[in-house]
Amino acid sequence: MSSWEDEDSAAASAAATTDVELLKRAWRNEKAAPEILHFDSALVSRAREQIQLLEETLDDFTDNGVDDLVVSLYQMDLDRTLFLLRSYLRLRLQKIEKYMAHIANSDDLLSRLSQQEQRFAKSCKEIMEKHLEQSVLSKLPYGYDSVTRQSLSSTEDDMVPEPQLDTFVFCKTKSDVGAFQLDDIGEEVVDLVADDLYVLRYKSIKGLVEAGRIDLI
């Protein structure tokens, strides 16, 4: 009996972890999380390869006169995957544009970006700084001409947009997490049961999202 169940669950998990499924999860998490998440370069390059392969196959199909119906079905599959990938990449670019100064300040955040994204973040920041410098800051009096600080008397970078990490997010647990502490002092504890839906503070479940134990929706 137990071997049957094992096979079943193994089959189910294999089915649930196609690259499209993984990409969809990454896309949803990225969309729902206030900050930029880790870029899964292995996954993205696998998706790219599969897309390219299917594009080539489709070319062959049209050359070989394969049934229009079959071609159109494969085309839909291709379009859906392309949409996911594009939307995922664009979403990340949007976040980078928005928080470029904040990301550039932190090695941890920078390490979450792909090579191309890092280059994008860097040049985006340079261009923006140059633009602000030329159009506004150079005309402001001394002490008020910083991109990142309101004035000389500011003790920290108070003009750098940062993602709001204590915002609330909708999430779904994949498996039992058990009693989970939401704050630092242990006043707020919730019991996270498998496959349930919660609205929680992003900051407190950040670790679970990164470990892939919980999905944002």
Partner: peptide, 29 residues
């Protein structure tokens, strides 16, 4: 309210209620 449990709420329902829920919780927090 530091956490809300919404057992069995569906995807579209989540999507509709999300802006209200998030802003309310955030304001209280």
């Amino acid at each position: 309210t530091h956490a809300v449990k919404l057992k069995n709420l569906s995807a579209m329902e989540v999507n509709i209620v999300r802006p209200f829920m998030v802003r309310t919780l955030q304001a209280f927090y």
